[in-house]
Simulated assay, not measured.
Amino acid sequence: MHLQAVHKTYGTARQAVTALDGVTVDFPSGTFTAVMGPSGSGKSTLLHCAAGLDRVTGGSVIIDGRDLGTLGQTELTLLRRERVGFVFQAFNLVSALTAEQNVSLPLRLAGRRVESAEVRQALAEVGLSGRAGHRPSQLSGGEQQRVAIARALITRPAVVFADEPTGALDIKTSRHVLGLLRDLVTRHELAVIMVTHDPVAASYADRVLFLADGKLIEEVPGPVTPEDVAARMAGLEASAS
């Protein structure tokens, strides 16, 4: 996917706030990108605009060769449903459904036939083949996030957006989830875009993008160490204060 000169402004006239200011960046298939920046830098807005959850004020967002700005709401919803996956900090699983039912939910919403073998294979890929019948309350936080990852992958998306995917997990579980995402990027030729504040999480990515004041300030190719990420973040936060 590709962002070209993306601008996002909230409000009008004197009340206008620029959240993104001319961001241009590619997210090739088979790559894992971490997005970092101080509070208010535009990280979440970038994710929302790139995923088509928010309309851009200017510029273009291209997914699978389609400019999201040219799509009506129904077309945009269908594109997100079929070609975009989401993983959230809070897991966002349906508590009344089993792991297997949660994973199959995107297929059901899309009106597609649900093959039990396909769903169980998705759970097996994230190491949960024995937990298909368990509800979220019967799963650990790490297991719930792995169900969420399987759910994001079930439609075979072109891109997966991960918003602080390890924010609610302990260190050991976080590393397991990040290693899983890293492996799935390669195995499925996915583009994974992860917003995070955690330098350790960012070190799993192929590159780290640093935002400040809505602008793309720096792009650091991997491998990158947590210490290097932390130092760069400290510099940005010092400049912003």
Score class of each variant (00 low, 15 high):
residue 55 R to G: 06
residue 22 G to Y: 08
residue 112 R to L: 15
residue 176 H to N: 11
residue 171 I to W: 10
residue 141 G to E: 07
residue 130 G to Q: 12
residue 149 I to P: 00
residue 193 I to V: 07
residue 71 L to G: 10
residue 28 P to E: 15
residue 182 R to T: 14
residue 113 R to G: 11
residue 50 A to C: 01
residue 198 D to M: 04
residue 182 R to H: 15
residue 9 T to H: 06
residue 29 S to Y: 10
residue 214 G to S: 09
residue 67 D to F: 14
residue 221 P to D: 15
residue 162 A to P: 01
residue 230 A to F: 02
residue 118 E to L: 11
residue 231 A to C: 03
residue 79 L to K: 00
residue 34 A to K: 04
residue 2 H to N: 13
residue 221 P to I: 15
residue 131 R to F: 12
residue 1 M to R: 07
residue 33 T to C: 08
residue 3 L to D: 01
residue 146 R to L: 03
residue 126 V to Q: 01
residue 174 S to W: 00
residue 151 R to M: 08
residue 240 A to E: 10
residue 136 P to I: 14
residue 19 A to D: 04
residue 176 H to T: 14
residue 163 D to K: 00
residue 86 F to M: 13
residue 226 P to K: 02
residue 192 V to N: 05
residue 88 F to H: 09
residue 14 R to Q: 12
residue 110 A to Q: 06
residue 51 A to S: 13
residue 77 T to K: 04
residue 217 I to H: 01
residue 128 L to H: 01
residue 13 A to S: 06
residue 143 E to I: 12
residue 157 P to K: 11
residue 209 L to V: 02
residue 162 A to D: 09
residue 77 T to S: 10
residue 130 G to R: 12
residue 103 V to R: 05
residue 192 V to S: 06
residue 18 T to G: 11
residue 134 H to P: 03
residue 202 A to R: 02
residue 2 H to D: 10
residue 58 G to H: 04
residue 50 A to N: 01
residue 82 E to F: 02
residue 74 T to Y: 03
residue 27 F to V: 05
residue 237 E to I: 09
residue 208 V to Y: 09
residue 118 E to M: 10
residue 168 A to I: 04
residue 96 A to D: 14
residue 53 L to D: 03
residue 125 E to N: 09
residue 96 A to E: 14
residue 236 L to Q: 01
residue 219 E to W: 13
residue 98 T to W: 09
residue 139 L to F: 07
residue 27 F to S: 02
residue 129 S to M: 14
residue 138 Q to V: 11
residue 219 E to L: 15
residue 109 L to K: 09
residue 241 S to D: 04
residue 101 Q to C: 08
residue 50 A to E: 03
residue 22 G to P: 03
residue 226 P to W: 07
residue 134 H to C: 06
residue 136 P to T: 14
residue 171 I to R: 13
residue 131 R to H: 12
residue 5 A to S: 08
residue 194 M to L: 02
residue 106 P to R: 10
residue 208 V to C: 14
residue 196 T to L: 07
residue 130 G to C: 09
residue 233 M to W: 05
residue 145 Q to K: 05
residue 164 E to S: 00
residue 10 Y to D: 00
residue 9 T to G: 04
residue 152 A to E: 07
residue 139 L to K: 06
residue 185 V to S: 06
residue 48 H to A: 14
residue 112 R to I: 12
residue 53 L to Q: 05
residue 14 R to V: 06
residue 21 D to M: 12
residue 173 T to G: 06
residue 104 S to K: 07
residue 217 I to C: 07
residue 138 Q to E: 14
residue 146 R to E: 04
residue 29 S to T: 13
residue 81 R to D: 12
residue 241 S to E: 03
residue 163 D to H: 03
residue 43 K to M: 11
residue 86 F to W: 12
residue 22 G to K: 06
residue 176 H to Q: 13
residue 137 S to L: 12
residue 27 F to C: 02
residue 210 F to A: 09
residue 168 A to N: 06
residue 139 L to I: 10
residue 234 A to T: 09
residue 184 L to Y: 06
residue 154 I to E: 02
residue 101 Q to R: 08
residue 206 D to P: 03
residue 46 L to M: 14
residue 169 L to F: 07
residue 31 T to H: 13
residue 203 S to V: 07
residue 192 V to M: 14
residue 190 L to P: 01
residue 47 L to H: 01
residue 53 L to W: 00
residue 36 M to L: 15
residue 27 F to L: 11
residue 85 G to N: 09
residue 84 V to P: 05
residue 42 G to W: 05
residue 81 R to L: 10
residue 130 G to K: 10
residue 57 T to S: 11
residue 20 L to P: 00
residue 168 A to G: 01
